[in-house]
Amino acid sequence: MPENRGVRAERVLDAAAELIVRWGYDKTTIEDIARAAGVAKGTIYLHWKTREDLFIALLRRERVALMTDVQQRVAGDPAGATLRSVIEKIAVAYVRRPLLKAVLLRDMEVIGKLSRQRELQRTPKLQRGLARYVADLRDLKLVRTDLDLHAQLAVLSAVFLGFFGTAAVMPAEYALGEEQMAALSAETVARMLDRGTALDDGERTAVADITDRFLAGTLAEERAKYEQMSGLE
């Protein structure tokens, strides 16, 4: 039977992800990807018109996978759907997805010339979603409001990026595991945003509702973008 279009697209993207992480975007050709995926070069162009389009679709698929992972891990966290849990799970998810990590850190050996593409110059949906998420928590005074939103987001970004930067330069004898670094990153953000008084039961429920809405909304947006880019709508 003919291979399902969606299954074939996934196989091509799997091959592209492996090659780009190994060789970098600039050194990875459509011919390389077709060979690794076991398809004809022309077959790839049935899905995406250019190599850039293929890579953008790959990034969007990676973001769908990342947000799916985060949503599932937050749902399974005994502490509940909290800000701390969200930050920790996002940090861990990035570590486990080298392609997205390379984009986040602007690793030119991996993304190369693609860094000039408009898609990589836009603010990712996740970052915009995080900004809305913190703003929603602020509106209900579930986090501190003595600092303005811009300042809080700047600190959040600095802590998050610092987590990856520190992991890369820390001497081996002082290096911490990725899970521990993610937990420390989340702890720092949570303390920075803590309003200084305990939440009551109703407020904890409100935080969980806002958290669930943020995760579900971001995932839905990323999935729609990926399906549109890959002709899977």
Rank of each mutant, 00 (worst) to 15 (best):
R5Y: 03
R11E: 06
W23F: 12
Y25T: 00
I33A: 05
A37P: 05
V39A: 01
I44G: 06
L46T: 13
W48P: 06
L54Q: 00
F55L: 10
F55Q: 07
F55G: 04
I56K: 02
L59D: 09
L59F: 13
R61E: 01
A65Y: 12
A65D: 15
T68H: 14
D69E: 15
V70I: 09
V70N: 10
R73G: 05
P78V: 04
V86S: 02
V86Y: 00
K89Y: 07
I90E: 12
P98Q: 01
L99R: 09
L99E: 03
L100F: 01
E119D: 13
E119I: 10
Q121Y: 07
K125F: 13
Q127I: 11
A131M: 13
R132A: 08
A135G: 06
D136S: 15
D139F: 12
K141Y: 11
V143F: 04
V143W: 07
D146H: 10
H150M: 11
A154W: 05
V155Y: 14
V155H: 12
V155N: 10
G165F: 12
P171D: 07
A175W: 01
Q180N: 11
Q180E: 15
E187R: 13
E187I: 07
G196R: 06
G196M: 01
T197N: 09
A198P: 06
D201E: 10
D201G: 00
G202T: 04
E203S: 05
D209S: 08
L215Y: 10
L219M: 01
L219I: 07
E221Q: 12
K225E: 15
S230G: 11
S230H: 08
L232G: 07
E233Y: 11
